[in-house]
C-alpha cells in the first residue's frame, strides 16, 4: 500500500501516513469549510492500513488550529485507530503535541483522550515567541 502525503495549505494540514514505518502524522492547521471532503482519503487510507498494519503504529498530531468542522473528522480517525488497537492488530501510540502556552490545544487533546480508549501522550512544545 502507498504512503499518503498531502502538502499543507493555509486551511489544511500536512499529512504523512507511512505504511512501511507505521507512522501517521498530521501537522499544521485544519480549518477547511468542508472538512469531510478533506478527511475522506485519510479515513480510506486507515481502513486499508487496518487490514495489514505494522505491529506498532505511531500517531503524531501537531495542530496549530482546527475548526469544529474538522474536530468530528479527527475523532473518526481516532475511532478507526481505536478499532485497530482493540483488534490487537497493531499497538497504537498517540502523541498529541501542543505549544506550551496553548491551553486550548491541550484541552482539545484531553477531549479526545476522554473519548478514545487509547491513552494520549501530551507533548509540550517550546513557545515560538
Amino acid at each position: 500500500m502507498e504512503t499518503l502525503r498531502i502538502e499543507g495549505s493555509s486551511k489544511t494540514p500536512d499529512v504523512n501516513f507511512d505504511p512501511e514505518k507505521g507512522v501517521v502524522e498530521i501537522k499544521g492547521r485544519s480549518i477547511p469549510e468542508n472538512s469531510i471532503e478533506f478527511y475522506k482519503p485519510l479515513i480510506d487510507w486507515l481502513n486499508e492500513y487496518s487490514e495489514k498494519p505494522q505491529t506498532s503504529t505511531e500517531v503524531n498530531i501537531q495542530l496549530e488550529y482546527f475548526n469544529t468542522s474538522s474536530s468530528k473528522c479527527i475523532l473518526d480517525l481516532f475511532k478507526k485507530m481505536e478499532q485497530i488497537n482493540e483488534a490487537d492488530n497493531s499497538n497504537i501510540k498517540i502523541n498529541w503535541y501542543y505549544e506550551s502556552d496553548d491551553e486550548d490545544m491541550l484541552e482539545a487533546g484531553e477531549d479526545y483522550d476522554a473519548i478514545i480508549k487509547i491513552p494520549f501522550k501530551m507533548i509540550e512544545l517550546e513557545d515560538e515567541d
Partner: peptide, 15 residues
C-alpha cells in the same frame, strides 16, 4: 462531539 449527529455542513452543533 462523540454522540452528536454530523451535519452535512460539518460542525454538528459544536460551533
Amino acid at each position: 462531539l462523540n454522540n452528536g449527529e454530523m451535519s452535512l455542513k460539518g460542525g454538528g452543533g459544536l460551533g
